[in-house]
Design a binder for these strands. Structure first.
Lengths: 242, 242
DNA sequence: TATAATAGTGTTTATTCAACACTAACTTGT
DNA sequence: ACAAGTTAGTGTTGAATAAACACTATTATA
């Protein structure tokens, strides 16, 4: 495996066939009508016109994988800091119909929809929030169906043991929204009293003394999740479990 | 990203710098003195003479990632079928001191030590089972310290919700060995009666009617894990939890 | 045959989980 | 202003699960 050698016509040559590496992001958002995922309509071949996860080639020799994922996230959403987690790497030699072998490292990111400035990507692709049920019915480009379905499964499983769900909610939220998120995750209704009791018993939710506005009926109190306290408790060996 | 073009002198040329992709395997084994990991002593630069995880370059354009991991596992252990799970991908541009960008996809595999024929790899590297505590004190090549420690954490966390621990034990085992494995995972002692009760209540452990031999004191019954029954129960929505 | 080592076995108490229904607060329409 | 509609907010009880706890049985060895 000799290092790449730059020749006059700006090509990079190697002794063995190489692979290209892309990073794809499953960007989740949440609002009162459920979980959404940010998809783009591809503006170029292959799969031109089809829906796909936002992603792109990494800058070899310069960029770390996570850096590339953050760059991608920023280009699509304008968000610089968000929860980001590696999901897995998909490397079947035929997963990209083009000749070369393209593997992709998939990341999951959770964003608050109220922080998202929805401008499209730098190139001509347009990004849209698609509700999950609709997204899962679409035939996505490459193996993105698989990646998306792995991502949803991972997210839903992880909610039980990790407060990352609060990364999807606005900073201040009514308990109802937390419950709806968890109900979507486990696929059935939860008893309101039991759920609120467990949630508040953690001591990690603070009453902001504010209430909802613009709501058609009795307004609920707004809470915020105390991440500082959570990290302290976690360092002491405590485990979130809801 | 044009496809690689083969030239007369057998080089592969691309319009952009490419990355090399390796697969590294964290191969875990278990015996009565605890968790072990299979390490090799590197026979070539970089890191010649240092300990490292077994791994190698994938065959671009031919091989799936998991295929490459299985090939690696077979070369090191002679085992063709074992539990194999992708751990994650490590891609810092400087993680390999050589010029080009080398990313690695790490896999965790669990093998039964009594099925392992310990012949060395195809090349001159020699593979050895190293007890975990010793392995974690060594300075491993590349970022393999990090990979190994991520792998151990993943294995130990997963034992609670997945019977994959039985992939480490021989087909027939005394309950004591299961308990020792779980005690290693959670880092403290477990009450024997409670543990055996929970384990047997699953109905997934079958008494083989055999007992240990070559043991210095009272011999224990040997059990086997019923994977068929487990998969059936799992398909019905049941979850292993110990 | 005594000693040492590990196997194997139930019960009780504390904790956690699950089921369950009404009143309070606010909005809107009349 | 008040009736109707909608969601917020709140405790108790019984069931299930988890945790604590100690002795007898079996075999090997000295």
């Amino acid at each position: 495996m000799g290092p790449g050698q730059k020749t006059k016509d700006k090509t990079y040559c190697y002794k063995f066939p190489m692979v290209s590496v892309t990073v794809d992001c499953v960007i989740f958002g949440w609002d009162s009508d459920g979980l959404h995922v940010l998809l783009i309509e591809r503006g170029e071949e292959p799969f031109e016109g089809q829906w796909a996860l936002p992603g792109g080639f990494i800058r070899a020799e310069e960029e770390d994988l996570e850096e590339a994922a953050r760059r991608e996230l920023f280009e699509e959403t304008g968000i610089r800091s968000a929860y980001l987690e590696q999901l897995g790497t998909y490397g079947h030699p035929k997963r990209d119909p083009r000749k070369e072998h393209v593997i992709t490292v998939a990341y999951v990111t959770l964003v608050k929809r109220d922080e998202h400035r929805p401008q499209g990507g730098t190139d001509a692709r347009s990004a849209h929030w698609i509700p999950m049920e609709r997204a899962r019915r679409k035939r996505l480009a490459f193996d993105h169906d698989q990646i998306l379905s792995d991502a949803v499964e991972r997210l839903y499983n992880k909610l039980r043991y990790d407060p990352l769900g609060f990364k999807l909610l606005p900073n201040k939220f009514p308990l109802r929204d937390v419950q709806q998120l968890y109900e979507a995750a486990i696929g059935h209704e939860i008893d309101k009293r039991n759920f609120r009791k467990k949630l508040l018993e953690t001591g990690l939710l603070e009453d902001t003394q504010e209430i909802e506005t613009d709501v058609k009926h009795r307004a609920a109190k707004l809470y915020q999740f105390n991440w500082m306290a959570y990290h302290k408790r976690q360092a002491e060996g405590w485990k979130f479990d809801i």
